[in-house]
Design a binder for these strands. Sequence first.
RNA 1: CGGGGUGUAGCGUAGCCCGGUAUCGCGCUUGGUUUGGGACCAAGAGAUCGUCAGUUCGAAUCUGGCCACCCCGACCA
Length: 492
Amino acid sequence: MGKEITSRSEDYSQWYIDLVKKADLAENSDVRGCMVIKPYGYSIWEKMQQALDKMFKDTGHVNAYFPLFVPKSMFEAEEKNAEGFAKECAIVTHYRLKNDPNNKGKLMVDPAAKLEEELVVRPTSEAIIWSTYKKWIQSYRDLPLLINQWANVVRWEMRTRLFLRTAEFLWQEGHTAHATAYEAIKETEQMLDVYAEFAESFMAMPVIKGKKSEGERFPGAIDTYCIEGMMQDGKALQAGTSHFLGQNFAKAFNVQFTNKEGKMEMVWGTSWGVSTRLIGALIMAHSDDDGLVLPPKLAPIHVVIVPIFKNEAELLKITEQADILAKALRAQGYAVKFDNRETHKPGFKFAEWELKGVPVRIAIGPRDLESKTVEVARRDTKEKQIMKMEAVATEIPALLNSIQDNIYQKALKFRNEKTTQVNSYDEFKKVLDEKGGFVEAHWDGTIETEVAIKEETKATIRCIPLDAKKEVGVCIYSGKPSFRRVMFARAY
RNA sequence: CGGGGUGUAGCGUAGCCCGGUAUCGCGCUUGGUUUGGGACCAAGAGAUCGUCAGUUCGAAUCUGGCCACCCCGACCA
């Protein structure tokens, strides 16, 4: 029917691509590496934005907007940051086109319109923001500065995948400034907690909170904290990062303040972000061979009502009942879609809404009208039940809660099953190849070992878990002493 | 940037080796019958075969250049 998607067991990455396209989330654009986010996919992003934005506001942050362009001299001010992103920057060098005299109807870059200084299209906004903060901060009374922006950024990636890695993507980036290191570290940790809470409560995706090793750290940060999720193919996905920037950007942009004692000090900073990549995570964490499985808290449509009718008169009667049910559910804040299209058969609609991951489907036909019931199907388990119409308004909300919980529990069980402790390098390689998932192993803490393991196995240190227990052991690679295990995995 | 591959209707494709302007499925349009798990029948519309040049009476097909995209690798907060 042209709607089937490749099964996960056959080809996981093809399954992912098929799903994104068939569920109408996004498609490749005519621009290399850039995607078009379609209305249904964008509505999921909007749900994420709403939930996150509220969490940011609840923790005292406000939104602002900074420019897309960063002058090159400003961009290079923080050396490590600049160096880290240099290889993937898009650069604006001219500001005008003109008619090409040698090629009628075509345009050419006007060489006379060369910019004095090139503009970097932001791959991240620390530079432009800290150069602005310099003007805003004079006294400890101006601190803390707690700002977030919803924006697009561009990173010229060699290879892209819908949602997971695109040349342009949407994200939010928080940039805060503080009077003390302690306060900035608290902020970094707080925002990591916000991300973890969002991932687990809204996305129903369990995550491991941890710190990045030196090699995986954000360029320009003192410490990078992250949340790491587990996808159904056993690969890890970094779902959000929160950076303690120390005074690196303050020094680069000379952002100082006068403290209570009247002395000048450098400002302490943080930055943190999540992107449309989360949609990729959402898909790969829960969906199945029939399509998307959305956690109710992020579903643009919670309940779809499908009428089953033979003629106008029947549709009319069903519509009457459907309106009553929809009204009762909408009054409780649920998004209800009544799919009364006469151009498609019920079976088609069932398949389509399953593909799109709507958590609950209600079918109403002539038989239901007689017995005053409806057929209720849940997307996560595909179970169906007959429910009294009068019970719908109270039982559907409970069902949605239970779906949210079930999806999370299922993902948690999977994640736990895919987490293995190993004590030797042979065992490490065996688990990676045969089982995948997270591998907890001792590591000597050196970048050399990390790089060597990555080169030999393609596994990276996803994080040093924040809750890692002190445990004496030896590095699986070098045999040198280690005092806690770290999380390795092959990752997206 | 290295290695491999592909470009034919909105989508997926056959045809290419062995030159004669194009196959099938999905989708689309119209009419009818259908409607509790992706309907059926009938009639239609839709393609300068990626692009530029060459060979030829004649090119989707052969030759060369160019472009785009995909896959593997390198790279990837």
